[in-house]
Design a protein around this nucleic acid. Structure first.
Lengths: 149, 149
DNA sequence: CGACTGATTCGACGATCGTCTAATCAAGCC
DNA sequence: GGCTTGATTAGACGATCGTCGAATCAGTCG
C-alpha cells in the first residue's frame, strides 16, 4: 500500500529534479510538484518525528526496535506508533515485524532528495560546478550574479 | 522584531550542526534541538510556501515583488501575505519596502543548513535502499575532517 | 488634501494535527 | 487454551493551521 505512494513521490521528485540542476532555486515548482513535495516536509516538521528519525538513523545496525523508541520519549506508545506511521506513509522509513518486536529503518533515498531540493545542488555536483548558493550562503543577501541553468 | 528570532534559529542550528559531522544520521537530536529545527521544516511543509520559496529563489535579480507572487496563485493577497510572514519568521526570507512595492528575497543560509541536516550523505549511497547513513563530508558544511562522531 | 493602489493586520471559520485512553491484534509462554 | 508483553487501531479532545472578507496601514499622484 505504501508502494504506489512511493512511486508517486519518486515521480514527483524526479520531475522536480530532472527539470533543472537546482530544483528549488531554478525552476519554479509547479502546483502539482509542490503538492507532492510538501507532505514529505510535513512528515519531518514535528519535533518528535525529527527525533524519531534521527534515533532510527543513528542506531547501530541501521534499525531500531519500537520499544527503544518509545523509551526515549515521554509519550505513550500509541502516540509514538502514530508518528512512525506518518513517517512510514511518507516513505521515509520502513518496518518489519520479527517475532514479538517490530523494527524500523530509514530509507535514505527520499531524504536525500528532499535535501537536494532545498540545498540547491547535490553534493556531488557542488565541487565541479561552483554552484551559486553554496558560495553566497554566508552572506544574508542574494547574489544575483550567476544564472544557474 | 525578527532579529531575535533569527538569532535563536542560528543558535539552534549551530548547536545541531556543531555537535557532530552528520547531524541527523549521527547524533540523536536532543529534545531542544528538535524543537528548534522542526519549525523550520514546518515553514516549508506547505505547497503554497514551497512554491513561494521557489518563485522567490529563481526570480532573476534575486528578489521578487509581492505583486508578482500573488499573481501566481489563486489565493487572496491576505493569504499570500500570511504565508510570506511565516517564511520570514522562520528566517528563510527577508523583505524590504521600496516605494509602493515590497520585495522579498531568499536567505540561503538557513535553507542550506536544513538541507545538510537531512541529507548529510553523498547521493551515491542514497540510491541504495535500506541502510544507514555513513556520516561523511557534507556539502557546504565546514566539517573538519575530524572523527566521525 | 483626498483618492487610489499595493500590502498587511484582524477576526472568524472549517479542517487538520498531536495527544490521550480504551480496545484490539500478534506472538511467545505457562 | 489462557496469560502476558509488545505494538497498533479506533475514537475523542483541544490546539494549531490555512483561508477568507473586512478593515487598516503605507506610498503615490492628481
Amino acid at each position: 500500500m505504501s508502494k504506489q505512494e512511493l512511486s508517486i513521490i519518486d515521480a514527483g521528485l524526479d520531475a522536480a529534479a530532472g527539470a533543472c540542476c537546482a530544483p528549488l532555486a531554478c525552476g519554479p515548482l509547479s502546483e502539482s510538484e509542490a503538492a507532492e513535495l510538501a507532505p514529505l516536509f510535513k512528515a519531518i516538521a514535528d519535533p518528535v518525528r525529527l527525533r524519531l528519525l534521527s534515533l532510527i538513523a543513528c542506531h547501530e545496525g541501521g534499525e531500531t526496535c519500537v520499544c527503544d523508541l518509545t523509551a526515549a520519549f515521554d509519550l505513550t506508545p500509541p502516540t509514538i506508533s502514530h508518528h512512525l506511521k506518518v513517517l512510514k506513509r511518507a516513505g521515509l522509513i520502513d518496518s518489519e515485524r520479527r517475532g514479538t518486536w517490530v523494527y524500523y529503518w530509514i530509507k535514505p533515498a527520499v531524504l536525500a532528495r528532499m535535501s537536494a531540493l532545498i540545498g540547491p545542488v547535490s553534493p556531488a555536483l557542488a565541487g565541479t560546478e561552483g554552484f551559486p548558493i553554496a558560495a553566497d550562503v554566508v552572506m544574508g543577501r542574494p547574489v544575483p550574479d550567476s544564472p544557474p541553468c
